[in-house]
């Protein structure tokens, strides 16, 4: 199995590719089942991402002279 997806985009894109692979019908039954199992895992990961409790908000303060600026977490609601 490939690495654990770190972003929703990664997980979702991989799931979409797996379904496309399965629908192409070019894989053996054995490989199809492997892909299906991975697809189910990825779907679960996607749902976990979406159930993530809070948006992580950080503030980027940019200096007037265009210096890179400083970043700080926001402990808001």
């Amino acid at each position: 199995m490939a690495d654990e997806p770190v972003t929703f985009e990664d997980a979702m894109t991989r799931l979409e590719r797996i379904v496309a692979d399965l629908e192409s019908g070019t894989f053996s039954l054995e490989d199809s089942i492997k892909k299906f199992e991975e697809g189910i895992r990825l779907g679960k990961t996607c749902r976990e991402f979406l159930d993530h409790a809070d948006v992580r908000v950080r503030t980027l303060t940019v200096a007037a002279n265009g210096e890179p600026g400083t970043e700080a977490p926001v402990d808001n609601e």
């Binding site: 979406l50 993530h52 409790a53 809070d54 948006v55 908000v57 950080r58 503030t59 303060t61 940019v62």
Partner: peptide
Amino acid sequence: ILSTIERRFPCVEVLVVPV
């Protein structure tokens, strides 16, 4: 903007740049 993101897609990270 923040409340809309919270409701729709909470797995995104937000960088607020105050100006």
